[in-house]
Design a protein around this nucleic acid. Sequence first.
RNA 1: CGGAGUGUGGCUCAGUCUGGUAGAGCACCGCGUUCGGGACGCGGGGGUCGCAGGUUCGAAUCCUGCCACUCCGACCA
Length: 437
Amino acid sequence: MRLSRYFMPTLREAPSDAQVVSHQLMLRAGMIRQEAAGIYAWLPLGLRVLKKIEQIVREEMDRAGAIEVLMPTLQLADLWRESGRYEDYGDEMLRITDRHKRDLLYGPTAEEVITEIFRAYVKSYKDLPKNLYNIQWKFRDERRPRFGVMRGREFLMKDAYSFDVDEAAARKSYNRMFIAYLNTYARMGLNVVPMKADPGPIGGDLSHEFIILADTGESQVFCHKDLVEMGAPGDVDWDGDLQPLVEQRTNLYAATEEMHDEAAFAQVPEDKRLSARGIEVGHIFYFGEKYSKPMKAEVAGPDGQNHPIHGGSYGVGVSRLTGAIIEASHDEAGIIWPDAVAPFGVAVINLRPGDAGTDEVSETAYQALIAAGKDPLLDDSDQRPGAKFAAIDLVGIPWQLVVGPKGVADGTVEIKRRATGEKQTLPLEQALKVICA
RNA sequence: CGGAGUGUGGCUCAGUCUGGUAGAGCACCGCGUUCGGGACGCGGGGGUCGCAGGUUCGAAUCCUGCCACUCCGACCA
């Protein structure tokens, strides 16, 4: 992409509405524009990041055996009356009436819809297990939206739903998602810690929040240090026994403030106790027959009788992650994108557009990087060098390849790694090798 | 939903107390000098001062009502 033809409206100063750093940086980098409280338009740069995060989530869901569907944003109120949640959900649910005076709602989640779909087609235990997910916009009319896209009213969520014949089978489905989540966040360059969450009315131990550690996180969290460094399992035998991998994590102490047990935390060796700030970026739970019973999602068992299925649901806040990653990765100059989610892989900065030498070298570099699949942004804009450096630092592109008249005269370019600030002056061929390594 | 605050060009803000021709910086347009970490000079364009009433000869400014947004708290991908 050539910056001169792109739409990347960066701001020198953050709008005063924005208080948290990720929100300020997203506005300054021209990623989003607020249209109403908790409702945002995604501008080209923001959309690129959002799509990359979404794609990572999708790939890891697919790898773990989940199947993608797409459910509507608008749902029938009658379905929610059936599950008993229509009245319970309260003012957070955005209720809509169509021209026929039919009650609709903008989905805050999709247990009802997916259960309706499932029960229409699946009738036998032989068809289980199944895990269906979608990545769709949700709306929750929060009392107080804040923190930019981290607590918007409209947000993009991946929500997966598992269907199993009994609790033991549901636990296996749960474990697959548990591992898939670890892999998902690791690919985004995040340190994530699964923490025991309030299981709600169902009880049991099958509910975890996935928390990334960031100094500006909104909740206080406590955990065993080893969890942070443990890394992700990667590809595993998804049909095998995942319980040991899960227990390797759940056996170590980890809890958010609400679930914190000071006595249990005191059992953790002192040098392993970590008390930090965190942001919730995922939540998984098993809810048994909560929806299948009232909504009659049943399959025939080997005994020939119908049994309600055992369900679980698994959420990832996709739009929230854009903000959360920034909270975890930024400096005074701006955003520092992990390579996997960066809007562009590298910025080629032509310091003197119109100069035959810099134009030629920039163009050569740009074409080579396109060919290498590095998705480059060519800054061919007519601005002073300082402004260009500041803008590219701000938007957080992982690599900068700087083409200036001085370098062209000695046959070199400068490359800079955004995360470390490390600079190298090299002939173009070598610079490209370093970036493409 | 309780408490606090803010609405003035695209962005940051001054002006409001004490009513009297709407301002600055950044951004934008033109010309010139510049050009390796957010340059400088000269000239220019752009604002129903959140909305609606009211007071007044006269309202960004005072009064009333409403709306929007932000922050703190209780609740949440």
